[in-house]
Amino acid sequence: MKRAIKLTKHYTPNSLRVVARRVMGNAHNAKLQLTVPVEVRSEFENIFHCTVRKAGSQWVKALFSDPVIYRYSGLLPYDPRPHNWRYPQPLPPGRIVSSLFVSYNGFMNIPKSGRYRTFFILRDPRDLVVSGYFSYRSSHTAMGDVLQVRKVLQEKPFKEGMLHVIEHLANKGTFRSLRAWAKAPNTETVRVCRYEDLTGERQADEVEQLMRHCGIPIPPAELAALLSRYSFSRMRNTQASDPALSHYRKGKPGDWRNHFDDDIYEAFAAATGDLVEVLGYPGYEAPATRDGDS
């Protein structure tokens, strides 16, 4: 049954998935309002989660949709895509909006009312390339340009496929968006976070700081329980019966070293310039032998 549900989700036309997600989102929010008492009302009208693809967006969305977030904020989760939101329309108040795949300037041009907080999650762009390759080739649901890119990748050897993904991400503006957000003015409204910090050894401290930025005062014990519920190992295990359809393939920082060779890195550097240094990640090292496509 679980496999049938996954396959249905994976291959159902995008228009039908949009309707299904809208119905499920509305039902989830109605249940929250009926069953979860709000202990603390947020001082902010909106929280905006901005990012680029393959930077843990599904994990963050799951985290901020949990009932404990509603309990300590009174803000309901909102996915702009199922609701046919179109830039630059305003988004509804009283919501945690996740995820917005927009540039910094694009986000600032969205009309906003009242007080809000924003966080942007970046990731080592080399790992974005690797994650993007496997997602496009095997696991991402058929939406947008996925099928076109998948066809190309399935016809090319691994190295040529990686080079294609680098070019594709450059053309889509992924690397430009990372650079713009990293260089955005440092204000109390916007917090830039690293995916590696939010999922690493200091996860509890990093997520607690993020929650504080968002004005969500979760007690330490409940925050620890929240992070346990949404640990990557647990979320991967729920999809272990069919890894090809999983959003949680690896998520390990530095995985690019297992897949980049000199030619791939040269193409990456040509497409991104000094982006790795701007984002504060370690520079190039001699690549390890690639350990396959897993």
Rank of each mutant, 00 (worst) to 15 (best):
V38C: 01
V38G: 14
V38N: 02
E39L: 15
E39Y: 14
E39M: 14
V40K: 05
R41P: 09
R41L: 15
S42G: 05
S42T: 07
S42M: 05
E43Y: 13
F44T: 07
E45Q: 14
N46Q: 12
N46K: 12
I47G: 14
F48S: 00
H49D: 05
C50N: 03
V52D: 05
V52S: 11
K54M: 13
A55H: 13
A55V: 07
K61C: 10
A62G: 07
L63D: 03
S65Q: 04
D66A: 03
D66F: 09
P67I: 04
P67H: 10
V68A: 01
V68H: 06
I69N: 01
Y70H: 14
Y70G: 10
R71S: 06
Y72G: 09
Y72S: 05
G74W: 11
G74T: 12
G74Y: 03
P77D: 11
Y78E: 03
D79L: 07
P80K: 02
P80V: 01
P82K: 10
H83W: 11
N84H: 04
N84K: 12
N84I: 07
W85N: 12
W85F: 05
R86L: 07
Q89N: 02
Q89G: 15
P90Q: 05
L91Q: 06
L91E: 03
P92Q: 10
P93H: 11
R95H: 06
V97T: 01
S98A: 12
S98Y: 11
L100I: 12
G106K: 05
G106S: 08
F107V: 01
F107A: 15
F107K: 02
M108W: 02
I110A: 06
I110R: 04
I110D: 09
K112R: 13
S113D: 12
G114R: 02
R117A: 07
R117D: 13
T118C: 14
F119L: 00
D124R: 08
R126W: 09
L128I: 10
L128A: 06
V129A: 13
V129Y: 00
G132Y: 04
Y133Q: 01
F134M: 13
S135Y: 05
S135M: 13
R137F: 01
